[in-house]
Simulated assay, not measured.
Amino acid sequence: MTKKVEEITAAYTKVHEKLFPGEAMTELFFEDDHFGTPYLEVTRAGYQYTVKERGNIQTAETFQDLDDFFYRFFGHLTFQVSCDFEAQNRVDPSADSRILIFAHQKELMGRHSEEWRRKTEAEISKITEEYPFY
């Protein structure tokens, strides 16, 4: 059973505050902004994570559980934040930037729960197995 927009927004705010304490709230969109921003569509099938760019659907994933949707949404957001963090804290320009990006993302996702940290670490492991650090 899906929740109402108000309940979703309240739950979103709690998760956001755990991941980014004291920082400005990143808006959760419930419709396409036409700029490739992820948004939530609540349907009978569940919570749909959707990304459209120039009218074309780039990503559309449906989740039965709101926490699973949030994991996907905040995974995207923490990756963006971690890329910015790496760019601002780069020490060695010749080093693989993903080392710092992935470490920071795991730390951010771990602020929500150990489960989110482990899931993020597993996803990163898959990436680095296929595309090893240099």
Rank of each mutant, 00 (worst) to 15 (best):
I124C: 03
L108T: 01
A103T: 05
E115V: 09
E107G: 03
T78W: 01
I8D: 05
S125A: 15
T2F: 00
I124N: 02
G36Y: 05
F79Q: 12
R117A: 13
N89W: 05
E130Q: 15
I101T: 04
A95Q: 13
A10S: 12
H76N: 15
D32F: 02
H104G: 04
F73V: 00
F69W: 00
L100S: 10
K3Q: 11
V91P: 00
Q64Y: 09
T50V: 15
T26Y: 06
R90I: 09
Y134A: 09
D32N: 14
V15H: 00
F79R: 12
K3N: 10
T13S: 12
P21F: 09
E31Y: 06
E61T: 11
T26Q: 12
R44T: 13
K106T: 06
Q48N: 11
D32C: 07
E7P: 01
R98K: 12
A45N: 14
E129R: 12
A24N: 13
E130D: 13
A87R: 15
E27V: 07
S113G: 06
T2A: 12
L108I: 08
H16T: 03
K119Q: 12
T50Y: 01
V81G: 02
R111Q: 10
I8M: 03
D65L: 08
C83F: 07
K126D: 13
K126M: 11
N89G: 08
Y12I: 01
V5W: 05
A95C: 09
E53I: 00
M25S: 13
E17T: 12
L19V: 06
R118D: 11
T128H: 00
R111T: 07
Y49F: 15
F102H: 00
L28C: 06
R90Y: 05
K3H: 14
E23Y: 10
P21N: 07
F85A: 02
G55A: 06
L108S: 01
G46T: 03
P93T: 11
F79D: 06
G110I: 04
Y47F: 12
E130R: 14
Q48W: 00
V51P: 02
R72V: 07
P38R: 05
F70S: 04
T62A: 07
F35E: 14
L100V: 10
S97V: 08
E61N: 13
Y134R: 12
D33C: 05
H112F: 14
F63T: 01
F20C: 06
V51C: 01
D65C: 09
E129Y: 11
Y131K: 15
H16L: 06
E129Q: 15
M109G: 03
G75K: 00
